[in-house]
């Protein structure tokens, strides 16, 4: 009698367990079904090319990009001993150094002044964010005119003060700075918009409370605005940094990597190796290195930056 009761009980437990397992499998299958479009999309356009790039970086290829000879780490050794690549590595880091802080500081300044509640402030917000809507190609053409050695406005402006004309895009000393300048201008729109959004989400009560306490403008900026904006700033810095490492369009349009390879950033160097010199192996190796650098820096940034960010 007692034994029968126990067996009925364990039967019931078994049944519940079985039913639970069934439901779990069903849930997993359903979840995968929902993910399927993303999985397919990312596999074709992201995962496969990435794996293929790593694979190619260990091979020599023919002109059509098919692997021919396995060379192991030779591609990496070769590019690291090539002065051209080391130069482009240096150029890329300089370019990042010129553009990222500049973009952030200028956008933050514009966002702070555009956050004031004034009549017609919408006009300024539109102007400040408008570069977001301009394609790199169009912006580059526009800057090309500005940089033009004789007709360009920049040199004409200098000549008013009796200064000598500068070869903005042709002088090796100036070329990288010029490209950086135009890049900052192009990036401001996006960064400004994100920072303005961040500023608007700060609770106005905090400022009112500070007003009553008698805090001055810069005290509020330092003690409230910047700390409260830190998650947004962190995001913007990360995105701008990654973007800067991947710059291609304006280099291609403005200088084509010249003069004397002074603006030959890594992505442009990859492009030239792959699609001008048909060296898919070394191009892939460079791409892998660039990937490693960006990944490393982003991780480092998360490690160091996260502590200083105040999420609400």
């Amino acid at each position: 009698m007692n034994g029968a009761a126990v067996s009925v009980q364990s039967d019931a437990a078994d049944l519940i367990e079985k039913e639970k397992r069934k439901r779990r499998t069903k849930n997993v299958l359903k979840g995968i079904l929902f993910l399927l479009p993303s999985i397919v999309f990312f596999s074709i356009f992201l995962f496969y090319p990435m794996i293929r790039t790593v694979y190619l970086s260990f091979f020599l290829t023919n002109a059509s990009g098919a692997p021919t000879v396995f060379v192991g780490m030779d591609n990496f050794i070769q590019i690291f001993s090539a002065p051209l690549f080391l130069n482009s590595l240096k150029t890329t880091f300089l370019f990042v150094l010129y553009t990222v802080p500049g973009t952030i500081v200028i956008s933050l300044f514009l966002a702070v002044i555009a956050n004031e509640k004034l009549r017609g402030i919408g006009v300024f917000r539109t102007i400040f964010s408008s570069t977001m809507g301009i394609s790199v190609a169009a912006a580059s053409v526009f800057w090309m005119f500005l940089f033009h050695p004789t007709m360009g406005w920049l040199n004409q402006f200098l000549s008013i003060f009796g200064m000598e004309a500068i070869g903005w895009l042709t002088d090796p000393k100036w070329a990288l700075l010029s490209v950086s300048l135009s890049t900052i201008w192009m990036n401001i729109g996006f960064t400004f918009l994100i920072l303005l959004g961040g500023l608007q989400s700060i609770d106005s009560y905090l400022y009112e409370s500070a007003d009553i306490d008698g805090a001055g403008y810069f005290y509020k900026l330092r003690r409230i605005t910047v700390p409260m904006l830190s998650p947004t700033l962190f995001f913007v810095v990360t995105v701008t940094l990654i973007n800067a490492f991947q710059t291609f369009g304006q280099v291609d349009m403005l200088t084509r990597g010249g003069p004397q390879n002074e603006t030959n950033v890594i992505v442009y160097s990859i492009y030239r190796d792959a699609f001008v010199n048909y060296q898919y192996g070394t191009a892939s190796a460079q791409a892998v290195i660039l990937f490693a650098i960006i990944l490393g820096l982003t991780l480092l940034q998360f490690k160091l930056g996260e502590r200083k960010v105040h999420y609400q």
């Binding site: 609770d203 009560y205 905090l206 009112e208 409370s209 500070a210 009553i212 306490d213 008698g214 805090a215 001055g216 005290y219 003690r223 409230i224 700390p227 409260m228 830190s230 105040h310 609400q312």
Partner: peptide, 27 residues
Amino acid sequence: LSMVFQNYALYPHLTVEQNILFGLNAK
């Protein structure tokens, strides 16, 4: 004057001590 807000308007990134001293510090 001093004011207490409905949502308290505490600074989320500052400690209780820094919150209390915010105004004195500003002055």
